[in-house]
Write a protein that binds this DNA or RNA. Structure first.
Lengths: 182, 182
DNA sequence: GATTGCATGTAAGAGGTTACATGATTCC
DNA sequence: GGAATCATGTAACCTCTTACATGCAATC
């Protein structure tokens, strides 16, 4: 399906960018909430997009002699990206979740062991949620208007927070379901 | 991390089972809500578990001459599975989501195109939620007791429904955020 | 007798991670 | 001078999907 291809095209379509900065988007920024790729995957894909004439590259010198490569989208690249953007694909497989797998097999552990698991998960997801909410309040004091880059940022951040909320609610429901037996 | 290994060990730990029936679990049953694997991945992994002495195999004849292989867990297999079950692993990367990626790049499409996307997603997730809720009401009229196989089934099904609920709520929030501009 | 489901496998390739490898720049 | 960060790449390996391949059993 080559989704990474379109993730890269989208980022490059926003303006010239280096492979390094693309990798940073995946690792640390908002994008990490719904897509990711290591630099070892990004660089070869950029090479491929170049060969396919979807992007061009400009070598620039930073400081004395350090080279960096600025990638820019081509007309064909933009066209392919927008075409992909409008596709209505079927839902795709449900994401894998190791903790749900452990829950499925919870009959192989004691109630107190599973309860410990649940508390550990609650801690981790609470932490993640807090970090997302921190980003939210720091970046947005009202809903950005549709059509701006910020709208996308806001929408996916909201989605990430809601996903954490739902996961936390599920964990609490599991706790409740254990302790209901009395 | 070899998570598939433990998914297989868990299923086999519940009692002797064939590779075919394991594949069915991943494709159609409750497990599909948090893990999946095609038969082309299951059969080689079973072979590997055999070599590692974590399971044993018994060849049985079905009908006239059709062979099937019943896998049974060994003492070592059970021990390794339970050890894995109790592991408290770090959270792991956020699952990829193509529709969130499209949302992130929504500034490259018109509001009406994105709104169409949202309605299409609402349809698909509503359908999925209805199917999950149908399973829930058909299988459970009250919360199974902790320690039973049914408790795990119930917990992951509940989680799947809550996940769909949350996704639907997010989609509606996105719709609201577009139409708020007036 | 044909279709659907049962049952098991392999091969090629795509997608992704970990580790290896190198060198420049900036900040302390 | 040393550490962290900038910047780019490759190699080996693991995971997973798609396609190929075969044959039996049950049902209509």
């Amino acid at each position: 399906m080559r989704t990474l291809k379109y993730a890269l095209l989208g980022l490059i379509d926003r303006g010239p960018i280096t492979g390094y900065d693309i990798s940073k988007e995946f690792e640390k920024r908002i994008m990490a909430n719904f897509w990711h790729a290591k630099h070892s995957q990004v660089y070869p894909e950029l090479k491929r997009l170049l060969e396919e004439n979807l992007i061009t590259v400009e070598l620039i010198i930073q400081g004395e002699k350090m080279e960096k490569k600025l990638y820019t989208i081509t007309t064909e690249g933009h066209a392919e990206f927008v075409e992909w953007l409008l596709l209505d694909e079927p839902l795709g497989v449900t994401p894998k979740d190791v903790f749900r797998l452990r829950t499925f097999f919870s009959d192989f552990m004691s109630a107190s062991d599973y309860e410990q698991h649940l508390h550990s998960q609650l801690d981790k997801h609470n932490f993640k949620k807090a970090s997302l909410e921190n980003s939210m309040t720091k970046s947005f004091d009202n809903i950005p208007e549709y059509g701006s880059k910020e709208f996308g940022d806001y929408a996916v951040l909201l989605g990430a927070i809601m996903r954490e909320d739902s996961y936390l609610a599920w964990l609490k429901a599991c706790l409740g379901a254990i302790n209901r037996q009395d």
